[in-house]
Structures are given as C-alpha cells and as structure tokens.
Computed example of a mutant assay.
Amino acid sequence: MNPSQHPGPQGPHMIYQAEPNWQHQMRHKRDMITGALHPHIGRTIRVTTIDGHTHEGVLAHVDGHHAYMHIAPHSHPQGPYRPIYTPAQYNQILTLVLFELLVILLLA
C-alpha cells in the first residue's frame, strides 16, 4: 500500500498526489545540483537550506539524493535553529538532502 493512502470503509483514501510535472522537475533539479556539486568534492563549501540553516564544511561525497559534508571543528550552523554541540560531535559527516539546498557557496 502506498504510504499516502489509508484504508477506509470504501478502500484506500488518497491524502496527497503530486502534480503530474513534479517528478520531471525534481529529477531535473536533482541532476543539476548533483552536477554542480560533484566537481567540488574535497573543497570547502557553505550551504543554506530551505529552512534557513547554514552549514560550512568540506564536501565529502554527493550521490543522487544527498550531499555529505565533513563539518570542521568550531563550525556551527547559522540560522534560526542552533543546536548545542559537544566536542564529540565535531569532525562528523553531515548529510544534507539535495532538494533542501537553497544556496551553495564555494569557499576555498
């Protein structure tokens, strides 16, 4: 069963359906972002997500759905939400969803 459907007395009830052109547009955007990021693996970047979070670090890997950033020591996300980090959390890989990236800056 599709997770967007719930069985009811008369069968499944659709609660969401994407617009017909959405799939093509999202694939195009995903491929465009992947192509823009892939040549910069190993370089320092700053990304801003659609939710206003900013992260800075070294781009470690890009696949068809995610960008993986190695977060540098003393690097904190900027924006409306600032989680508290402990020293054990530094030097970790941050996984970002490609569709949520709004701005990507090459820093070094």
Score class of each variant (00 low, 15 high):
49 T>I: 02
61 H>W: 00
65 H>Q: 14
43 R>C: 04
17 Q>W: 03
60 A>P: 08
52 G>W: 12
42 G>S: 12
11 G>F: 02
53 H>C: 12
67 A>M: 08
54 T>Q: 12
50 I>T: 15
59 L>S: 02
22 W>D: 11
42 G>P: 01
76 H>W: 09
14 M>E: 14
38 H>G: 11
50 I>G: 10
58 V>D: 03
61 H>R: 06
12 P>Q: 05
73 P>F: 05
23 Q>G: 03
49 T>R: 00
71 I>C: 05
59 L>W: 00
32 M>D: 14
17 Q>D: 08
25 Q>T: 14
32 M>P: 06
35 G>S: 08
76 H>R: 07
28 H>C: 06
23 Q>V: 07
28 H>W: 01
53 H>A: 15
57 G>N: 08
58 V>S: 03
60 A>W: 06
69 M>G: 04
24 H>C: 07
63 D>N: 11
63 D>C: 07
48 T>G: 00
53 H>G: 11
59 L>H: 01
42 G>K: 09
39 P>A: 15
35 G>K: 10
31 D>F: 03
17 Q>I: 07
25 Q>P: 12
67 A>R: 03
56 E>M: 13
73 P>T: 09
49 T>N: 01
55 H>L: 15
62 V>I: 07
74 H>Y: 06
40 H>W: 08
51 D>W: 08
73 P>H: 08
74 H>S: 06
27 R>M: 06
40 H>D: 02
21 N>K: 13
76 H>M: 08
28 H>P: 01
30 R>Q: 08
74 H>R: 06
67 A>S: 10
59 L>E: 01
46 R>T: 05
28 H>N: 04
55 H>E: 14
39 P>H: 14
50 I>W: 08
